[in-house]
């Protein structure tokens, strides 16, 4: 795939203190480092090793990731929404690349 592209799903609005469900998916090969190429040479590991979710700067959920997580990694988790604001999602690649996504939510 070209540059990994995140998909994030969460509600646009919530009531104060509501616990919402967040789903995230990103395109990534998650090369485990266990495979070999056609010549029998090991294919070097390249995975997303860390995923984080923050709300208005406060950590909500994060995940330390090993190669046993499937290609196109999927995470579903929850967040308690105290106020209107912005969720920031970050995926960190072994090669140092950082993929980011932001999504706002309005408390009614």
């Amino acid at each position: 795939m070209a540059t990994p592209k995140p998909r994030v799903k969460l509600p646009k609005t919530a009531s104060a203190g509501e616990i919402i469900t967040i789903k995230t998916l990103i395109s990534h090969q998650m090369e485990s480092g266990q495979r070999k190429d056609k010549n029998g040479d090991p294919i070097p590991r390249q995975i997303i090793n860390k995923f984080t979710c923050e709300f208005n700067g406060t950590p909500v959920f994060s995940c330390d990731i090993d190669p046993a997580i499937s290609a196109n990694p999927y995470f579903e988790f929850n967040a308690k929404v105290p106020e209107s604001g912005t969720f920031k999602f970050t995926w960190i690649d072994d090669d140092g690349s950082v993929y980011e996504h932001e999504a706002g939510i309005e408390v009614k």
Partner: peptide, 27 residues
Amino acid sequence: GNPNPDVAVFNFSEASGIAAATTRMRL
């Protein structure tokens, strides 16, 4: 039974609201 037993570590906080998570893994 995987080549390496580590799969993932989920880190929660009060802001998580519920300590639950779903992912997909290799076996």
